[in-house]
């Protein structure tokens, strides 16, 4: 608070203190300045070099998964919100379960057709609930995709229980960006097991 110019006493007295709103853009004619040693936007960062990081970002190819496995990708469908709307009757009518997207050529090779049920097993041996396959051109051959929020395990959620597979359950590993600490979860690999 001290750095921002406020004190606890002031905050207690005022209740809510709003700081000044910084301008969104620099005005014409004003030379912009940035919080870097040179005051300019730096494509080569001496600060990063000094700390032992790459001063210019270099692409590092992601680690592939075990042979025969697929990188697990997950995303959102506009119909549902997180994992909390799967019991909503109207939304369930529109989308009752998620599907695992498998590339068409992979499906042909594995003898998998849309509508077949499979289970996903990840690199740490975690086995998912049964989930319907969607064999499609819309996913890369080295990846599979699930919409997040399904595969509920709470029996009390009667209408969502056991519907689809949980991506979250299969995400047992993550990696952290060494520079800013962000976490990436698309580093889990699954194999498909046919479900009778």
């Amino acid at each position: 608070m001290k750095a921002a110019g406020y004190s606890l006493a002031e905050l207690k007295q005022k209740g809510l203190v709003k700081g000044p709103k910084p301008p969104l853009y620099f005005e014409d004619g004003i030379t912009p300045e940035f919080a870097t040693p040179s005051g300019k936007i730096e494509f080569y960062s001496t600060q990063l070099a000094e700390k032992g990081f790459d001063p210019v970002p270099h692409f590092v190819r992601p680690e592939p998964g075990p042979a025969g496995s697929f990188r697990l990708l997950y995303g959102r469908a506009p119909v549902h919100t997180f994992s909390r709307t799967q019991t909503n009757p109207v939304l369930r009518d529109a989308m009752a379960e998620n599907e695992v997207w498998v590339n068409a050529s992979v499906g042909a090779r594995l003898g998998l057709a849309s509508g077949n049920y499979v289970r996903l097993r990840n690199q740490d041996g975690v086995l998912s609930n049964r989930v319907k396959a969607r064999v499609t051109e819309a996913i890369r051959p080295d990846c599979v995709y699930l919409v997040h929020g399904f595969g509920h395990t709470a029996r009390g959620l009667r209408s969502a229980f056991g519907k689809g597979a949980s991506d979250a359950q299969l995400i047992t590993r993550y990696v952290t960006d060494p520079l800013m600490g962000g976490t990436a979860t698309n580093v889990n690999f699954v194999t498909l097991e046919a479900e009778a």
Binding site: P78, P89, A94
Partner: peptide, 22 residues
């Protein structure tokens, strides 16, 4: 159109469309 199905939900609500039909 992004396929959000708001149109489906709105219609269902506005017109009392029975379960299982749209």
């Amino acid at each position: 159109c992004v396929g959000c199905m708001d149109c489906v939900v709105a219609c269902k609500t506005e017109n009392d469309v029975p379960d299982g039909h749209c």
